[in-house]
Nucleic acid binder design. Sequence first.
DNA 1: TTGTAGGCGTTATCAA
DNA 2: TTGATAACGCCTACAA
Lengths: 328, 328
Amino acid sequence: MVKLTDVAAKAGCSVTTVSRVINNYGYISQKTRKKVHEAMRELNYQPNSVARSLQGKKTKLIGLIFPDVSNPFFGELVSKIEDQLFNHGYKTILCNAGSDTEKERTYLQMLMANQVDGIIAGAHNLGIEEYQRTGLPIVSFDRKLSDNIPIVSADNFKGGSLATQELYNHGARHIYFVGNPTLDGHPTQKRLLGYKETIKELQLTEHIHPVIFNETLALKEMAIKDLLENHKVDGIVASDDLTALLIMNISHELGIKIPKDLKIIGFDGSKVVRDFEPRLSTIVQPIPSIAQLLVKLLEKRIDNPTEKLDNYTYYLPVELLKRESSGN
Amino acid sequence: MVKLTDVAAKAGCSVTTVSRVINNYGYISQKTRKKVHEAMRELNYQPNSVARSLQGKKTKLIGLIFPDVSNPFFGELVSKIEDQLFNHGYKTILCNAGSDTEKERTYLQMLMANQVDGIIAGAHNLGIEEYQRTGLPIVSFDRKLSDNIPIVSADNFKGGSLATQELYNHGARHIYFVGNPTLDGHPTQKRLLGYKETIKELQLTEHIHPVIFNETLALKEMAIKDLLENHKVDGIVASDDLTALLIMNISHELGIKIPKDLKIIGFDGSKVVRDFEPRLSTIVQPIPSIAQLLVKLLEKRIDNPTEKLDNYTYYLPVELLKRESSGN
DNA sequence: TTGTAGGCGTTATCAA
DNA sequence: TTGATAACGCCTACAA
């Protein structure tokens, strides 16, 4: 490993000088600057960022804590965030927490130990305190952690409302909300609230059919089959696209025609789902904007950790994508 | 940030002693060991891994270079790798290289500078030399980099062959290979070879219809429409599942019945595609095994960089998943 | 404009 | 069984 002293020796000057030209700091004569650059090139010198970090500089490492990139929505979101971070000179440490509290806790420890410059939190098995205790700049996706941690999310409430209205507009009157019904500040909760309010406005009856997010496929299928076979339903607002796809598949199996007999709309609108299931109507989250805002806020926090923000809650607009499954 | 000296002060001993109990190294009396542990707990001490790394220890950081986690296949693969790495005590630096040579090169630099312990390379815009030059332990997914870099991949040749045979068994006689036809050692190349050989064995005529991987959706759709409208085709081996899905969708639009008029089979078999498009036949890559083997090999390289392996090429068995789209 | 030297938090060597 | 102290590679007062 070639180091500063090697470059200095080669260039015939002191390490200070070399350090100065690397960091563009203080006065340097053109001549020495050039000599140093040459030496660096010849030796193929690469500053050791570990040493740099130790000395007090930033690590330029950001921890990303999300449930799982094998889910297309999180895959795309993480991908966009990684790209933004890269453009800002940061490296991404990927932490798939799943629904594993212990893993998330361990990762939090590791991120502290590794002196990451900040954290983007998108998995939420852990409570506020554990995150606070890191003392690191944090921004959160889709869930409130505490008053002084900025949270970015799509306008889930509006999305739930738009989805419900869309089904109504196409004639559905027995509209179910299908998905995770948890009340713990989970993002789908707001989607459900949007659904509920719109149902009330439309003077319909609300129906909630739970399909738990981290259950097995078979259990989900069973729950959906039960819904379709034993309930009077002509419209479904799914809590997310994957659930919507499942419902479409099972409807097909059961001979239920979409959208004739049953109208359905999903939520998330990742590019993969949009491109490869063109019949599914959905509420599209603005993934690129979410990524951009998360990174922007985090960088602001890093550069100025104590500065109060004028806003700690950001709702990004969603978009209704009308397709066949909802009656178009 | 509480450090070793703080713990030492609290415990009433020297930093050496504290370091010793942390690393379980040398002789320590039970009494002091206990005192130190207490002090650590009280101060909530967390070793600084940056300092540790500088001093010569491993960073326990691994760089993952892959095209893009928003693709379900890579999303799942990266997810599994991350999990394996976590279980082995490593942190994952995620590098989505896309098809961007410059970004990949920059990431390689960063990984060197960050002193990662090793690299798992799954994107391949760059040549061998750039990877060799890092001097880091490397294992590769799905593409040969050089003689002394282990490569892990699914048995793509066998997969291409199985797929072709499956369509034939269900009556297809005009079987096309649709996808990336590049000849540069890209994994789909072997799938194509498997297709070709089987076509020959079956005494059919081979047909290759290029649909370039990183073209836009619209261009891909155009190419597929052209195929379906202007060619006599009753079977398609797609180079990957997403291409297969596209073909299924366009067939639907054009009123072509699957599998009656056209049989089709994909490649990859990520969990998302398997679970949410249950009609698609496909060749399933053993993603968890691939992840496990990659990590195992990498760790071996890290622990013993000079040791020769008895094998540098690993083909993991694929599985034919028979469903409706190929005629079942 | 350049160089010397001390320190970042840990580990490792050598004495005690 | 314990403790000074010198590295690790870099940055940055402070001096020259």
